[in-house]
Structures are given as structure tokens and as C-alpha cells.
Design a protein around this nucleic acid. Structure first.
Lengths: 111, 111
DNA sequence: ACAAGTACCCACTATTTTGTAAGTATGAAG
DNA sequence: CTTCATACTTACAAAATAGTGGGTACTTGT
């Protein structure tokens, strides 16, 4: 979180779920809780450092829950909180849109 | 646009509307076409450079339309394309969510 | 004895994104 | 004749974001 006040709801929401990975992480947790490694494999392309970092922020923001099992080898399970579920639901139309226009988006000029 | 293929719709959508300003710009254009200066005032806090840059990308991506009037002083009007309108519609639940949880978001730990 | 697997942390570097300040053209107003 | 306004552009600086390679602790399997 960077700002303290927002010009509108979208501004605020983007501050929570913006960035390269957060939305994706939520997305992949929508069906079931996952362990760190499994989450990493599903998100794809994310480094360990980034995943820990993003997941910790999401935890601090009350979007997801982190359950640590005191074992060796370590085991940590991530799941959406209720708050996180409402956020994920709000993200769904955007995901739908992206899905529907995937080809158009892939064909967009990149530089 | 950075990627050429996406793991899911949300991934793709975030690539179009991610970043600090783009979603906000779309949002403020939802009701009516606006001139550069007016758009800038409404978005608030954005520099001229950033606005031009973001708006040009959105134009290249077919999200908004840019109409130049060959006058002095210059006049340029921005409006959503139909595509942009579908995107804005998909963004609405997220904006709603942000609006509903504004206080929670503002109270989130920032560092 | 030794490598493999887990979920990290740390220091460091690279890349990307964002911001700041200045300059441009032209005409109208004072 | 100087200033103001518009919608930019350019060069440069700063800040945010991302990646790399190393290390850790302990257990299980070879």
C-alpha cells in the first residue's frame, strides 16, 4: 500500500491487487488452499523471493491466510480469507474479460 | 504489453490495465469524452508526461480514441472505444469492491 | 556419508516504472 | 512586446519492482 487516500474505489482496489503477481496469486488460490511450492508451480514464472514477498503483503492486508506447520521439512499453506474471497469475486469479471479478449490482447503491439 | 502469452484471463487483463494510472484514466472517461487538460485535472496527481504516455498506449491497444483538432492552442479529445467500454464494465465490480472496503484499505499497513 | 527436498532469508544487481524540469509551436490578450 | 494557454517532447534523475545466487535447518532416502 502506498497511498493513504484514494480518488475512487478502483484506485484503492488497484493498490491492493496491483503489480505483476498479486492478482494471479489470488486467482490460483480461488479453488483450494495450496502449499508454497505448489502455488509457485501454478503461478508459473515467479521466483521464490517474489512469491514470499507478495504473499506476505497479501497476508498483512488480510487477503490471505498463512498457516505454518512446525515441521521439517517446512510446510506452509496459503488460503484466501473471506475478505480475499470477496476480492477474488470482484476480480472475476476482469478475468472473464481477459479470457474473452485474449487473442486481441496477445495481438497488441508490444515494445 | 509485455507478455506474448498469458496463464489466464486475469493475467492478460492486468497487462492491459495494470500500472499506476491506466485503470484510473479509463474510469474517468467512463461518463464523457474529455480533453487532455481536463482529464489530467480529474485523474489528479499525474504528470503531463505520464498522462500522454499512458493515454498513447491505451490508444495503441484500442482501448481509447484520440481525436486531434488541428488548432492553436491544441485541442485533443479522448474517449473510450467500444472495446474500452467493455473493459471499463469489467472493471466496475473491482471499483465497487474498492469503494465498499475503502476504510479497510486505507487502514492497511503501509511501508 | 551424501544428496534431495522444503520454505524461506539476505545481499546484491538489473530492469522497469515513474517523476521533474525544461523546451516547443502558435495565436490571442494585455 | 511580453505573457498565457494548450498538448505535448526530451533529457535526466529517482524510486519501485524484479531477479540471481548464496545460505539455513532438519529429515528422509540412497
Amino acid at each position: 500500500m502506498k497511498k493513504v487516500s484514494y480518488s475512487c474505489g478502483l484506485d484503492a482496489a488497484m493498490d491492493v491487487v496491483g503489480g505483476k503477481w498479486k492478482a494471479l496469486i489470488l486467482w490460483h488460490l480461488h479453488a483450494e488452499p495450496l502449499r508454497f511450492g505448489e502455488l509457485r508451480r501454478r503461478v508459473g514464472g515467479i521466483s521464490e523471493k517474489m512469491l514470499t514477498q507478495q504473499v506476505r503483503e497479501l497476508e498483512r492486508n488480510g487477503v490471505l491466510h498463512r498457516e505454518v506447520f512446525e515441521q521439517v521439512p517446512p510446510k506452509v499453506i496459503y488460503s484466501l480469507t473471506e475478505f480475499g474471497q470477496t476480492l477474488n469475486a470482484a476480480l472475476e469479471p476482469l478475468g472473464e474479460w481477459g479470457h474473452r479478449h485474449m487473442e486481441t490482447i496477445e495481438a497488441m503491439p508490444r515494445d
